[in-house]
Amino acid sequence: MDIPRILRRAWIPGLWLLLWQGAALLVGEELLLPAPLPVLGRMLALLGEGDFWLTCGHSLGRILLGFLLGVLLGGLLAVLSARFPLVGAFFSPAMAAVKATPVASFVILVLVWLRGENLSVFISFLMVLPLVWQNVSQGIAGADRQLLEMAQVYRLSPRSILRAVYLPAVLPHLLSALRVGFGFAWKAGIAGEVLAIAPGSIGRRLHDAKTGLEMVDLFAWTGFIILLSVLLERGMMAFLARRFPGKERD
């Protein structure tokens, strides 16, 4: 990458950093708004701590597990709902309720049943489940009727119908659900950890920073949450784009 291009890409983030620095100077109180440099310094220092990687791994592992479970069950229920309308009618209000319920309500409810450290699995699962269910259901419902008739007349095998008719109809919806769902799961999972004060998690570190009024820590951890979210989402999308080129819904 040549220098002018780096400059072109960097000037807007640079401007935001300057604005942040200006605001921090204006406030003049680290307890309210720390400046960018100490935060960056703290982030670098955290990278050297053994605990840091364990903490990130702890949160990531649980949130990804919930995400995957949500994708699997959401997809499965969507297929069952399409096959048996009664199943769809049965789950529809439950999915609507899950989508409308605030994360905090779930956290408080679930804390009664689950240990805090496993809560983020359940929270990220709940965020993804209705999203995947709804998107995959839409994809199935949007399968080309004319192709389905062709498949019926030509007696295509269920496997062929899946590959030729349903998969192309569902993939764009599923991919967009995965992209949006991952962001949801990640943010809600961390929020759940904060509320549950889940031991060994990023959320716990945020909670500790808040109670100790360690604003530099709070900003540094938030910075890592954003970084991880962007990196993971880009990684996932790059993988999916390579696997299924040109398939995401606009």
Partner: peptide, 13 residues
């Protein structure tokens, strides 16, 4: 074995 049918539309995948 099924019906060889050419529909009004081509209905290719």
């Amino acid at each position: 074995e099924g019906v060889s049918m050419v529909f009004q539309e081509n209905r290719l995948v």
